[in-house]
């Protein structure tokens, strides 16, 4: 369930669009930033705001890879292995982090497609904040910095940091 503040925000978001259905993606981001994932119940709630069915919201949201339909901890680590990162060490960063955090419920490591950071490849995002020019070791350090609070993370859906 959206918090009272987010309910207010949800109404504002819906009002930005001529048709409420357009608000499905932003409301799903809002729910995911709040809950850390996109639950079945959140889809139900979004359906009410957007004048549609939960099946429709599920169908729409499942199309987009940023929405996580199971809890994934506080940090989503997205490592690029696409054709630039591929040849400059991206797969090695991925393998290292996957191994390192295999049993860490707070860190969800995923392989992603091109992040548009090829000039400084290999690169990754943690909760959609960029980290570039990585080595396996420096990438691990970044994740550790987030875990220790030395770096302040965005929401799991990339929402702005709340003061």
């Amino acid at each position: 369930m959206f918090t009272e503040a987010n309910k207010k925000r949800a109404v504002e978001i819906v009002a930005q669009y001529p048709k409420a259905h357009s608000a499905i993606l932003p409301l799903a981001h809002l729910a995911q930033d709040q809950d850390g994932w996109l639950s079945l119940d959140a889809m139900d709630e979004i359906a009410d705001y957007c004048d549609t069915t939960a099946a429709d919201v599920q169908g729409v949201c499942s199309f987009y890879t940023m929405y996580k339909r199971r809890p994934c901890g506080n940090f989503v680590v997205s490592v690029c292995t696409n054709v630039t990162c591929l040849v400059v060490g991206g797969p090695e960063v991925l393998e290292h982090l996957e191994h390192k955090y295999a049993n860490d419920n707070d860190v969800f490591v995923e392989e992603v497609e091109c992040l548009a950071a090829c000039g400084n490849a290999p690169s990754m995002q943690v909760n959609y904040e960029y980290h570039e020019h990585l080595t396996p070791e420096s990438a691990e350090q970044v994740v550790e910095d987030y875990k220790a609070g030395r770096l302040v993370a965005r929401g799991v859906s990339g929402g702005a940091v709340h003061a």
Partner: peptide, 21 residues
């Protein structure tokens, strides 16, 4: 009655209802 929809995408596309409905 849009109670079934495509879920996931590409080669993984499947038809599903929402588990609550």
């Amino acid at each position: 009655d849009p109670l079934i929809s495509f879920v996931d995408r590409g080669g993984h596309t499947q038809v599903l209802n929402h588990p609550n409905h």
